[in-house]
Amino acid sequence: MERSFLTFNNVSFQYREDYPWVLQNVTLNVKPNEWVAIIGHNGSGKSTMAKLMNGLLFPQHGSVVVDGEELAEETIWEIRKKVGMVFQNPDNQFVGTTVKDDVAFGLENHGVPREEMIKRIQQSLETVGMSSYENQEPHRLSGGQKQRVAIASVLAVSPELIIFDEATAMLDPKGRREIMNTVNHLRRERDVSIITITHDLNEVAMADRVIVMNKGEVWHEGTPREIFAKQAELTDIGLDAPFVTKLAHELKDMGLDLEMEPINHEEMLDALCKYHLKT
């Protein structure tokens, strides 16, 4: 069996004893270099999962294992070097007074020597395309730019897993594109696992694997294609299917069966083309 970088073993979590369970018996694996999307409606427990992944929260039952080590008070600082997180609100995770200082923050925490720090700051800002903003103050940046700095801050520490906890939810379409381009660029440039927690379907379609959460439980997991095929059920749990999926299902209802489940325009057009040639 392939090595798993992050594992949840029957994880259950509640914020307080008299509160309902937010997560129940969640088991999942994320492999090295894999891109996993976690989707679910608001309140399905997605963000709680993210916080369990680097010890911002600890489960009441079950265990979280990162790179072979179980998350516990003694291991969190080592694990936080390996697991980087980008949060939802661009403003509330910007610690430094300038872009450069913000990227430095994580490095300073980990006691990286100054010379090395300068090198890593430059590299990671370059990766996210923010080099020319080095000395900018945060309030002069757009939401998308701030999120890119947040990604650079995480990258500088060279994590093996980066979690995007609804990192695009507060951005405009341009900002979203910037972030998704950055993520795609990262995948090509570095060995890193990625978890995106989102309800943006275009982001889901790019992932290797999708985990759908509903009411604190893993409702389903599979490739984007497999998940989108369950269109009706997705709608039932408060999610939406992409336009292409919906169209494919309408066509299917009319007896026009496409060869495979298309997940983007190009696949849809190809499928239609094949059908066209057959008739």
């Binding site: 916080k51 680097n54 936080r80 949060f87 609100n89 995770q93 923050f105 100054r114 300068i118 801050s153």
Partner: peptide
């Protein structure tokens, strides 16, 4: 709310007080 978020973000980025920290600003 911001303070809460920020504290969480700082912790996630490995902040655990001044001990053993290096500094960029010199």
């Amino acid at each position: 709310k911001r303070a809460e978020d920020l504290a969480m973000a700082m912790e996630a980025r490995g902040y655990q007080g001044g001990e053993g920290r290096t500094k960029l600003r010199e």
